[in-house]
Simulated assay, not measured.
Amino acid sequence: MGAYDDRFGSILIGSWLSSMLYALVVTQVYQYFRLFPTDAMYRKGLVLSTLFFCTVALVADYANVYMPTVTFWGNAEKVNIQYWPVPLFVTTSTFVGVLVNSFLIHRFYSLSKNLCTSIFLSLLMILGFAGSFMVAITLQQFSLYTSRDKAKTAALVWTVSTALTDIGIAGALIWQLLSMKSSFKETQSRIRRLIIQTVQTGCTTSVVSIITLVSYLIKNDSNIPTACNFVIAPLYALTLLSNFNLRQRADPVSGSGRSTSEGNTVRMDGIHVHRTAVVTVDANKTGTEHQQYHNSSKDTKVPDF
């Protein structure tokens, strides 16, 4: 029975880890809708779509473990076949990554206006999704566990492109945030927090993608890359939700949290405007003194990730 440790034990452990991460995803989704009820509909739709595909991927993970270890246990021929859950979790987990990375690439473009880098990252993301789709089709056509080599080329395209996309997005965002300067201590502190957040969330999916790639290159007949792929979808979802939930909380009165004022400083979702008054006295006016007031402002825009 120890011969099945690699094949079934790895995906069983992967399903446990995926379940724990999924519980965190559900908690973060609840927190998002509680804290930001007035968010734009596209953000709410993105969160719900991500949760839906994470749920489908988790069900596929469970089915992929259940069928060989329960339904067909003891049937040597049946347990060597990869059934419908395998292509399903491959495509759904990758689609979660596409949703999250599309949002992050859009954020990067909105922040930097760097069209070339944004297009390059988008092409890498699309290439990774195409590779995962080809893996799913190949596994559906050649369902024997021993026929996994037929999907090797597509699997390499998928894993390499995914790892490069995650690393590229995290690196581009960090580089752009490092280039931002502000004379406001609070804004500069917020930029530093965003850099730390980008490193933490971006490196998580990047590291898992690299582990998946390395484990596949070392032993492509193992189920360890499959187990790694089990956790990638909830990790992507947590990346998205952490970007949303770490924003400034909504104002308890208006619910929007869009604008607050403190003395001469106005804060609007990361835009800090400091007002100063300059008084000019014109003594040349006969019998009167003319006073001219001029308002000047500085602003530094920090995006809400």
Rank of each mutant, 00 (worst) to 15 (best):
R7P: 04
S10C: 03
I13G: 05
S15R: 00
A23S: 13
V26P: 06
Y32S: 10
L35I: 04
P37Y: 12
R43D: 03
K44Q: 13
V47H: 00
L48N: 06
A57L: 03
V59E: 05
D61P: 08
A63I: 00
G74H: 04
N75A: 01
N75V: 00
W84A: 01
T91H: 10
L99K: 07
N101G: 03
I105A: 01
F108Q: 03
F108G: 12
S110A: 14
K113E: 07
L115I: 15
I119M: 01
I119V: 11
S122P: 10
L123C: 11
Q140T: 10
Q141F: 04
S143N: 10
K150D: 15
A151Q: 10
A154E: 14
T165D: 02
D166G: 09
I167L: 15
I174K: 02
Q176C: 12
M180Q: 14
K181M: 04
S183W: 12
S189E: 15
R192W: 12
S206W: 02
S206L: 02
V214L: 14
I218Q: 06
P225W: 04
N229S: 08
F230L: 00
V231E: 07
P234A: 05
Y236K: 04
Y236A: 08
A237M: 06
L238D: 04
N243I: 07
N245R: 11
A250Y: 11
V253R: 15
R258E: 14
T260I: 01
N264W: 06
V266S: 04
V266A: 05
D269L: 11
G270C: 11
I271K: 01
V281R: 12
D299A: 15
D299G: 14
F305K: 09
